[in-house]
Amino acid sequence: MALRTDAPPVTGGPATRGRRPESARRRRRGYAAWGFALPFTVLFAVFMILPVGASLYMAFTDMRGADLRSPLAVNFVGLDNFVTAVTDPQFQQAAGNTVYFVGVAMPLTLGIALLLAALLNSGLTWFRSVFRVGFYAPVVTSIVAVAVVWRFLLQPDFGLVNTVLGFVGIDGPDWLTDPTWAMPSLIMLAVWRNVGFSMVILLAGLQGIPKDLYEAAALDGAGPVRTFRSVTVPLLRPTLLFCAVMAGIAYLQFFEEPFVMTQGGPLGATNSVAYEIYNQFGFGDYGLSAAMSYLLFVAIAILSFLQFRLLRPKN
């Protein structure tokens, strides 16, 4: 944070306004600053700070839908909601599914994004901006809308995916109703939609690596793989970290994909923690739902922390 000194640059000039006592001017500027900050701060306090605090409060109460109008007249139940959540087989399955989803989709997204960025940065690409725009386009789409589209693409009888697989002699599965293939289907959609985001950021990171480092590596006789490992990856660490954290946070909360494509099925195979939170909320179990939210929040914090440890710049 750059702290600025408050001394005016022009002192003792002909301007009479500058003569005002320093303390009065400071106070006046303080009022002005809070004037700027006020609209945001009020909304921020009401719609962010209050709910974050209330979420913790609710997680320790037996609040239900019936208490909606009297949220303070509820009983404290200690850690009951947390115990209920972690011992519930359905929540455990949702947690396992979420780990599966993040554990596969995140590395896949980053890997493909890095590959595409490296290809686009090689100097051999013919229409670089066309590719960049094309790969980024899915990022701006509504997940709900593209989940509908992918449900259609994955339709077993006349869907495009199985038609194309049929061309090469593969008899595609019934993607969304097969417990084995349902989750890979959602992962496919997520990777397809999100690769462009990481790719654009990684490409900017690659372009920021000084060319002479590559020339030096080449002079030292380093091949492409060695150069990639010893020059590109170390210098790209902060960028990779940012992409990993963003993807991790987004993927841990995946919700629209199962909501639209599978409703969490078949047999709970695509139920996610976020979807389970929504369902418990729908059942009117606000306390339990808030406790699950906090568990998810802790998971997000832990994942981000691990990523920082793993990918922080090494000196």
Binding site: M48, P51, M63, R69, I300
Partner: peptide, 17 residues
């Protein structure tokens, strides 16, 4: 980094009231 998934339940209670 506080995601909407964390705040939507209390936010709903607030907005309802």
């Amino acid at each position: 980094m506080v995601p909407g998934t964390i705040t939507f339940v209390p936010l709903f209670v607030l907005v309802a009231n």
